[in-house]
Design a protein around this nucleic acid. Structure first.
Lengths: 348, 348
DNA sequence: CTGTTAGCGCGTTCAA
DNA sequence: TTGAACGCGCTAACAG
């Protein structure tokens, strides 16, 4: 049960018959005579010496830790992001500490305050809502922060985001080209960053492609989850009869698929469905889900790299990266099956 | 851009006109005169003082950090586990550092060695494969470790696991009661802990319920993923004609659903499908997936609590917790729809 | 090339 | 109750 005793630099020095400084040098690969090097390495391995991370941190002023804070850790899109960040950060020699702020913005503020305790060298933050207060805290931060997600104009912070307005346009264009005219929007909470920007994108695209502009074609789920999407999708189908539904999220899209199926309607013949984020789920469901790939993995990777860059060079110019979305067409909006006059099943 | 200057205990002391020790006392809630207390608190808040985590750690010998290491971070079941651990650990006043060991056992060993650097007070480890060497390292560890997953008999380590043998029995019993006789098993790599124990469970249950014992009813995917499950499921259907498929995983089960659909067979009428882990995916797919709930969330929560307990009391007796599985019956094995003789049956 | 020394920021003895 | 001093384990500057 009891493991090896913790050995210190001084113990190694004593055993090797040299000074503590020499040990430090040898272990850090600095100049030392062959003789001393040999003896130190021998002593160190005899004692199973490993340098203490905390003491080292206190001395050098770096913890070699990076924090990742996401608002909604339950969303599957965050899993791929977390994995990517984890990889990049580990390759850069940093450990990743996870700080799940919930949906409550207060937690994010708490986190930012706590950051001044210096347990981490940098932060990647993906806030669900961006308040002025939050922005103020971000600017005041003592450590570098990269924001993952949209940020107000003119905030000089490293930041990487998806262009969900273009993403929405891709979806609407794809659907409009099939002759879909009543394209509904199943959104999540509109007072969140993704909810707000995706709504903007939808409205702009509706305008651009001249599809129906009806209030009853828009509905807002209480959350970006399947469970919240279900009643919202039902409500949407109750109050209108769309020929396509664009969803702010793959989970919401799957909820739409289910609500549609419950009414005995067919996807994509009667209603096409398009999701967003292109999570693995899109390929698992039946019919497979067309989805707008917002480049979650790439965004995460880029954010991590930006942070590493700034940690290496604090005076580097601020960079704001926008990732281009791509449309992944699958069965739920397949063209050849679409727009068939009535209940024809022949061409299938 | 430049944030507040980092303020130290000495600065606060100077501003309050007291000694550094008094500041430390006031801030740690120890005895102090009302006057000094007042002045220190004032000075501290003026300077926005926050104690340095690293220095404190070096002094008190605790980092207030816990590491979580999972082998396959891409598996959705780990997401809920991570979230639970995150919650419990945060409530206990600890930060969570994530250490994604890949599928390679060498990484786990590296991690364990690195742990001696003392950047973390405890570890929750969920190994995919358990070698003698790993067990040896675990026992030698200087910090408390809780193992999440099966462990060889007699290893005196805190540990929490699912009883997947009983889980398998639940699945087989459910299917056998419907009259299913050719119950296949779509497994992941059998040289992993989950792969091995689930195979044992399957074999035992096949024996117990007297269903067909044919080698061609067992197939092993290269990985516990949808992508790996697809060809494995195809191979299974090529080489045999099961009337039910139990899968080691929800992802594999979804792959089975897809392979079955491709052949124009119906679920559950022609083939029933049962998954494992009861991830959110089970409720998203069509038909909804019957799944064995192995209590992932509860296991994670329990593991975290065990670790907190041991951190508080290093001499507590070793505890090994086994979580009881529950069967969640859904459409993919619905009873009333089963066993309807269909014309496809003959041509199989 | 090597040893001695001074902190990094904090908690905690020991005297006063 | 308060203050001065020490040391946690390590790195870096300075002497020798």
């Amino acid at each position: 049960m009891a493991g090896t005793k913790k050995s210190t630099l001084a113990l190694v020095a004593e055993r090797a018959g040299v000074s503590i400084a020499s040990v430090s040098r040898v272990l850090n690969g600095l100049s030392a005579s062959a003789d001393v090097t040999e003896r130190v390495q021998q002593a160190a391995s005899d004692l199973g010496y490993v340098p203490d991370a905390t003491a080292r941190s206190l001395k050098v002023g770096r913890t070699e830790q990076i924090a990742l804070a996401v608002a909604d850790a339950a969303n599957p899109v965050y899993m791929s992001m977390m994995n990517e960040v984890s990889r990049v950060v580990a390759d850069g020699g940093y450990r990743l500490v996870l700080s799940s702020t919930g949906a409550d913005p207060a937690n994010e503020l708490d986190l930012l305050s706590g950051l001044d305790r210096g347990f981490v060298d940098g932060l990647i933050l993906s806030p669900l809502r961006v308040t002025d207060e939050l922005v103020e805290h971000l600017r005041r931060s003592r450590i570098p922060i990269v924001v993952l997600g949209s940020l107000p104009e003119g905030v000089p912070l490293d930041n990487v985001r998806a262009d969900s307005v273009i993403g929405m346009r891709l979806a609407l264009k794809h659907l409009a080209k099939q002759g879909r005219r009543r394209i509904a929007f199943l959104n999540g909470p509109v007072d969140t960053v993704p909810g707000a920007t995706r709504l903007r994108g939808y409205l702009a695209a509706v305008e651009e492609y001249g599809t129906a502009q009806q209030a009853d074609l828009q509905v807002e789920a209480d959350d970006f989850t399947f469970a919240a999407g279900l009643p919202a999708a039902e409500a949407l189908l109750d109050q209108s009869s769309p020929d396509a539904i664009v969803c702010a999220n793959d989970l919401l899209a799957v909820a739409a698929l289910k609500a549609i199926a419950r009414r005995g309607l067919r996807v994509p013949q009667d209603i096409a469905v398009v999701g967003m984020d292109d999570t693995e789920i899109a390929q698992l469901v039946h019919p497979t889900l067309t989805s707008v790939d917002l480049g979650a993995a790439k965004r995460a990777r880029t954010a991590a790299k930006l942070l590493l860059r700034r940690l290496g060079d604090p005076d580097a110019e601020v960079r704001q990266v926008v990732i281009e979305p791509k449309l992944r067409v699958r069965e739920s909006s397949a063209k050849d099956a679409a727009r068939e006059p009535s209940r024809t099943e022949a061409s299938r």
